[in-house]
Design a binder for these strands. Structure first.
Lengths: 166, 166
DNA sequence: TTTTGTGTTCAGTCACGACTGAACAAAATA
DNA sequence: TATTTTGTTCAGTCGTGACTGAACACAAAA
């Protein structure tokens, strides 16, 4: 049904996703949607992955909220279908970008509020701030650069999609 | 005993650490070590954080293995002491760098092994590879740049340390 | 309206893993 | 050697949260 390489991809992706805070089944859904040629419905996910409807529903909503999966509802079809947002690795990075930002914020607030006797702590905090600042900036630069270059490719992708729809 | 701002820092850091896969107590240890002027021993961590010896031992080993905490053993003192490695945010980033690398590897292996009928999957994988490649490169550039600039600051830091030791 | 199909919610179950505390190991003192 | 101090290991407890399955809500068809 599915090529062994596809199965292995799904398994390995679900492990990676788990370490990024996404439940195992969520990772499986993501992997299967990457491998599939066309969007899958909720009950297809249930039967293909042998998990409960509730679990699929919860994990789909999680993946939607993180912007890695899109829901598409065709006219005249009550069934919703799901596909991966091709930019899902981008969304993963955005999460770690957000973490860096709040790391920076936490360090700054602590340093400004601490009394001056916390000499070493303030030193350490300054270093943390400096690092998270350049790390945030570097990630932001990388993302904008990526988006620009992706824009160029999109012309071809759009044509491809038009063909598929017609 | 500890300034309120320091307490809040520890609490917020432990939350951030948790989302990065470090147990809550590990995050508390890390935060306390950042706030403290001098390295702390194992039993000091036990009494300050009100947790068990076993828990401190396990979490310290985890933090050591991730390179965010250093163990220092003074001559003539049986007690080990611990301090944060000032570069611990760097180590956090290195983790997400490693994740990006394996994401790239997983995608490449899958794409090369999949038969050609997996058209859309291969497209998606290609996109994933492209993104993780530039993201890995950008992170690497950022890290080397940071290390170079940190080298310059280290002269001052070393002087400071010498004073503390003497 | 009733029936049928689809998606969500929720109480209950289960598994994983963090934490504890006691037993143990190791090493320096006496 | 025995004693004291420090760190680690491990069996057991506990809490969190993911998963299930049934009940529910909703909307389209009959």
């Amino acid at each position: 049904m599915l090529h062994p390489a596809a199965v292995e991809f799904i398994e390995r992706l679900s492990l990676l996703a788990e370490s990024a805070g996404i439940p195992r089944i969520g990772g499986c859904i993501l992997g299967l949607l990457v491998m599939e040629e066309s969007p899958l419905s909720s009950d297809e996910l249930v039967s293909r992955l042998q998990v409960s409807k509730g679990s699929v529903s919860a994990n789909i909503r999680l993946l939607e909220s993180r912007g890695v999966v899109r829901r598409i509802s065709h006219l005249g079809d009550r069934k919703d279908r799901f596909e991966v947002d091709a930019s899902f690795p981008e969304r993963m990075i955005e999460r770690s970008l957000a973490e860096q930002r709040s790391m920076r914020l936490v360090a700054m607030e602590a340093r400004s509020r601490l009394p001056s006797r916390y000499v070493r702590a303030k030193d350490a905090l300054r270093r943390i701030e400096a690092f998270s600042t350049i790390s945030v900036e570097s990630m932001e630069r990388m993302l904008t650069k990526w988006r620009e270059s992706a824009h160029e490719d999109e012309a071809a992708a759009t044509v491809h999609e038009d063909v598929a729809v017609s």
